[in-house]
Design a protein around this nucleic acid. Sequence first.
DNA 1: CAATTATATTCCCTTGAAGGAATATTCCTT
DNA 2: AAGGAATATTCCTTCAAGGGAATATAATTG
Lengths: 118, 118
Amino acid sequence: MNSDELCQVYRCLCDVTRLRILNLLGEDALCVCHLQQVLGESQVKISKHLAYLKNHRLVESERRANWMIYRISGAPNPILEENLKCLQDLSSEDPVFMADLKRLRATDTSAACCPTSA
Amino acid sequence: MNSDELCQVYRCLCDVTRLRILNLLGEDALCVCHLQQVLGESQVKISKHLAYLKNHRLVESERRANWMIYRISGAPNPILEENLKCLQDLSSEDPVFMADLKRLRATDTSAACCPTSA
DNA sequence: CAATTATATTCCCTTGAAGGAATATTCCTT
DNA sequence: AAGGAATATTCCTTCAAGGGAATATAATTG
């Protein structure tokens, strides 16, 4: 990791929608439609932000039939990991992150698109 | 700290010049002219980035005669602190940060503009 | 193969921010 | 008060990126 790559990581983190996505993916791998549901944002918006995160190697994806499952990248990244921890801490205080997690837990993850249902 | 403020912090961190500035200020408070010297960047550029950091409360400044001394903000900010630590770790590997620190140490800090000479 | 579902991409518009040149401001010295 | 040094601001141009509407692609189902 060099200074430019470090900047790239922060660029990924400096959008609230991406932070919300990462916060959710910190809990579990998720398909696009679930992210869309939980975040209440448009399909394009979610899809573009996921592409952005993927291009910068913060998340990775795997196709499962019709669905794309996204998860936090497995490649070790100390900066990302440290900041995901911070995110987790904040998510017990911040109303936006809290509400997202609440909706996530209320979401039926037994559907065909869910990673654990494979 | 809420999700928007968190984004703001990351926005501050996603420019390499600002990271270089923060890396230097992590060592010691510095005046603009020293930052300019060490970073080898234009006066406008440094000044604008400092203004940006100050507007977002990551640094604070104090006038000393002709000079403005900038330092990392004293207000507690866990996210900033955590990432300054990361920056410090990286600065022993990354060529840009390393070179900056080396030039900083080679800089005469006994001049009138330096905080410790007060 | 046609229709449907899930997701990605393209086109377009708008905005924030980076950087340089020129200028303004602030403070010091004489 | 005038000049000089340090720093800040304004004006301008360029560019990345956010978001929506429409369209394209990929896989599934009938």
